[in-house]
Write a protein that binds this DNA or RNA. Structure first.
Length: 805
RNA sequence: GCCGUUGUGGCGGAAUUGGCAGACGCGCUGGACUCAAAAUCCAGUGGUGGCAACACCGUGUGGGUUCGACUCCCACCGACGGCACCA
């Protein structure tokens, strides 16, 4: 009888459920292995074929490690707060909680149909009050440690709908939904001081087993740069205020010919001369109405105005005109620069446009049309003359420090994390603002601060979240009669996902976010698999929280994820990203129904390397199904019985290929090369078809190798081979290295590096004999007779290369 | 523009230590089975030439190192991803 995937898959899924096969205990006598997936947002669309790719990879590792004797933690959960639910709720008048829970049920059922070996007792959900209690608790700890503060920050503001939008909701300067033009508006926000961890977030990347590309993206995002702060006096001013600039090239200080403040700089008003006041004001207004997009468009066309004031270069006393220009950002460094047009592209462009002086202080640039930003010998630079860049930087910083005119300084591109959202469907920030002007946290013993049930979500219109409408929840009175108002901002979706991997370790603890000993045993995550789209935000935020929790003694490790792997995207058959509009979306439910979960798993792993993007192919999936059919027929006959040539008798014709297969599959799984592991199993099956007898030992071993990839089929065949139920914890097969070596080897003969012949020889043949054999080869002789042999290279057991002139 | 990844048959991809390029799968061709077809099993399949043995060409392009390069070095081109005036 043919392979009946539906029946077999249902049978074994029920078996695993009933026997709690994958329940994880904290059995610390065993070595541990923690394999986690990036948990999904349970969208209304359900599972995508991209999801099973990463999930299958961690599942293969989990099943493999169990067979290797590891105690495996392999959990799943739901990142269930988020914008789509809120938008849907506003449109339909439902509560996001209700259909979020429906979506989760749908996701869980879909994921279970894939036969993934999760411990469902540890399922977590970020919207569950017993979970977000601890998200709120972490926020309170951050607040108590001075890492959470309130500040006016610029946000994306839809002036017609009167709502705040996330960056990703703004497309080309317009709201993705309403199409309204978005403005920048300052609003009070909660902000987390991630910049306090900037250095450690960069430095600790070095020890992580992550893709270099992701580490590099994080380094760029954090953007650490080393340079100097330099103080410039303002000429003729009555105040003592100096302008502090930041530069990475203090060595070019002698080449500074003007200065620029950002239009928002606090000293602009006080230094601008009365003659220039009007043009400065006009320019600032012009800038203020421009959106980010328009500012970016101005990239190639620099603008700015002169303030009328002059700064004094501390190194030589020269007077430098002070301009304001929007190419200097108020949010980076000090919002003020010294301009060295000869050696900075942006300053050069600006100087050309406004006809400012350009003074060369480094030799090496020959082109008068561009700035020279490279290294070179300093000239026209007083005591720096003759030095190269590194020497000059050291010397000038020492000079500045001695004179009190500056010092070495490190700056970061990274900004503090705007942590509040003007939304309903998120964790309430547990803060009360009192009418006496004070702010307090909700006491720890009152956590979780529950998100109030709202039947109808309406925008508040004020820029606050819909929570501002819920008066009963909003207003509180203290024992002493002082009235207060709860914080209406909620946390961003990143909050719950910044620590969920800790909760899996001890998901039902109501005393702590997780037990310390359990964390000591299970952390770090040994393998973390997810999409590269989280390269920066999620992975950076999670690292930040983890380091903070480490500092306050909650977690035992500095980093959460030791090894990170990004699975590639699964593209449509046309090699384009799957999308509804392109009509190339494949629904995993259809594949599971028509071909089976095992086929889907094997196909997704066989398509190509895990980390690469690869296109879906309908023919490819039938090929994988055909192979599983072939595996089935190898062992099971038409009458649904084990074939009689599966036997305890071993004629040894499969011995070598069997041991090779165990070795290759084992090593490939260790290195996440699942595609080549499968291809090796295919080779083994092909060989087995040619063999008259199928030794039981090899068939058992092969089914074990197959089990991580096609677990349902493997469980079924395992029983049919006469073993007792459940393959999951049976010790992984071993290979014998001595069985891989033949007594004879094939060596190749080359002439001038080209293959001209080959021969099968004894494995321990010596070099001379190999060379003799090569010279005796008929075809080799065609190429060497009549020519002079200049050199012979012979690697024993491999090849002979005869070099002739 | 800058940073990163990547480029191999008709297609997905192997070759992770510099040593037989194209494993494995798909597709295609032929054979067996069948009245026939499907399914299955077996064989072949980079290009050009040749009955064949074999020869020449061939891993994005152009150079280089080496007895020998998909692999290492230099320059360039294309695709994908990220950042985008960060001083």
């Amino acid at each position: 009888m043919a392979y009946q995937h539906q029946q077999i898959e249902q049978k074994w899924q029920e078996f695993w459920d009933k026997h709690q096969t994958f329940e994880t205990t904290d059995e610390t006598s065993k070595p541990k292995y923690y394999a986690a997936d990036m948990f999904p947002y349970p969208s209304g669309q359900g599972l995508h074929v991209g999801h099973p790719e990463g999930y299958t990879a961690t599942d293969i590792m989990s099943r493999y490690k169990r067979a290797q004797g590891f105690n495996v933690l392999h959990p799943m959960g739901w990142d269930a707060f988020g914008l789509p639910a809120e938008q849907y709720a506003m449109k339909t008048g439902h509560n996001p909680a209700d259909f979020t829970s429906e979506n989760i049920d749908h996701f869980r059922q879909q994921i279970k149909s894939l036969g993934l070996s999760y411990d469902w007792n540890r399922e977590i959900n970020t919207t569950d009050p017993s979970y977000y209690k601890w998200t709120q608790w972490i926020f309170e700890k951050l607040y108590e440690n001075g890492l959470a503060y309130e500040s006016n920050m610029m946000v994306n503001w839809d002036p017609i709908d009167r709502v705040v939008l996330a960056n990703e909701e703004v497309i080309d300067g317009k709201s993705e939904r309403s199409g309204n033009k978005i403005e920048r508006k300052a609003l009070r926000q909660w902000v987390l001081k991630i910049t306090a961890y900037a250095d450690r977030l960069v430095d600790d990347l070095d020890d992580l087993d992550w893709p270099e590309a992701i580490k590099e993206q994080q380094r760029n995002w954090i953007g650490r740069s080393k340079g100097a702060a330099v103080f410039f006096d303002v000429d003729g001013t009555t105040t003592n205020e100096k302008i502090e600039v930041y530069t990475t090239r203090p060595d070019t200080l002698f080449g500074a010919t003007y200065m620029v403040l950002s239009p928002e700089h606090s000293l602009v008003d006080s230094i601008t001369t009365s003659e220039q006041k009007e043009s400065v004001e006009n320019y600032r207004q012009e800038i203020a109405v421009k959106s980010d997009l328009e500012r970016t468009d101005l990239n190639k066309n620099k603008t700015g105005v002169f303030t009328g004031a002059y700064g004094i270069n501390p190194i030589n006393g020269e007077k430098l005109p002070i301009w304001i220009a929007d190419y200097v950002l108020s949010s980076y460094g000090t919002g003020a620069i010294m301009a060295v047009p000869a050696h900075d592209d942006r300053d050069f462009e600006f100087a050309k446009k406004f006809d400012l002086q350009i003074k060369t202080v480094i030799s090496g640039g020959n082109d008068v049309d561009v700035a020279y930003t490279g290294d070179g010998i300093h000239i026209n630079s007083g005591f720096l003359d003759g030095l190269d860049k590194t020497e000059a930087i050291d010397k000038v910083i020492a000079w500045l420090e001695e004179k009190g005119s500056g010092h070495a300084q490190t700056n970061f591109r990274l900004r503090d994390w705007i942590f509040s959202r003007q939304r309903y469907w998120g964790e309430p920030i547990p803060v009360i603002h009192w009418e006496d002007g004070t702010t307090s946290l909700v006491p720890e013993n009152e956590l979780p601060l529950l998100l109030p049930h709202a039947t109808e979500l309406r925008p508040s219109g004020s820029g606050e979240s819909p929570l501002a409408n819920l008066t009963d929840w909003l207003e509180v009175t203290r024992e002493d009669g002082v009235k207060g108002r709860r914080e209406t901002n909620t946390m961003p979706q990143w909050a719950g996902s910044s620590w969920y991997f800790l909760r899996y370790v001890d998901p039902h603890n109501n005393q702590k976010l997780a037990d310390t000993d359990k964390l000591k045993y299970w952390m770090n995550v040994d393998l973390y698999v997810g999409g590269a789209e989280h390269a920066v935000l999620h992975l950076l935020y999670a690292r930040f929280w983890h380091k903070f929790l480490y500092d306050i003694g909650v977690v035992p490790t500095k980093e959460p994820f030791q090894k990170l792997v990004n699975q590639g995207m699964i593209l449509g058959e046309n090699h384009e990203k799957m999308s509804k509009s392109k009509g190339n979306v494949v629904n995993p439910d259809d594949i599971v129904r028509d071909y089976g979960a095992d086929t889907l798993r094997v196909y997704e792993m066989f398509m190509g390397p895990l980390t690469q993007s690869k296109p879906w192919s309908e023919e490819g999936i039938t090929g994988s199904r055909r192979w599983l059919d072939r595996v089935w027929r190898l062992l099971i006959d038409d009458n649904d019985q084990l074939r009689d040539h599966v036997t305890t008798f071993n004629p040894l014709d499969l011995e070598k290929i069997y041991h090779q297969t165990v070795k290759k599959v084992t090593e490939d799984i260790e290195n996440l090369r699942f595609n080549t592991a499968i291809s090796q199993m295919m080779v083994f099956v092909n060989e087995s078809y040619k063999s008259a007898a199928l030794p039981l030992e090899y068939m058992n071993g092969f089914v074990q190798l197959l089990a991580p990839f096609a677990p349902h089929l493997a469980e079924e065949l395992w029983v049919r081979l006469g073993n007792s139920e459940s393959i999951s914890y049976v010790t992984w097969p071993k290979y014998d290295e001595s069985k891989l070596i033949d007594n004879t080897v094939e060596i190749i003969f080359q002439v001038n590096g080209k293959v001209r012949g080959k021969a099968t020889v004894s494995r321990d043949i010596d070099q001379d004999a190999m060379v003799d054999a090569a010279k005796a080869d008929e075809n080799v002789q065609n190429f060497i007779t009549g020519k002079q042999i200049r050199k012979v290279i012979a690697i024993p057991g491999k090849f002979v290369n005869i070099v002739v002139s």
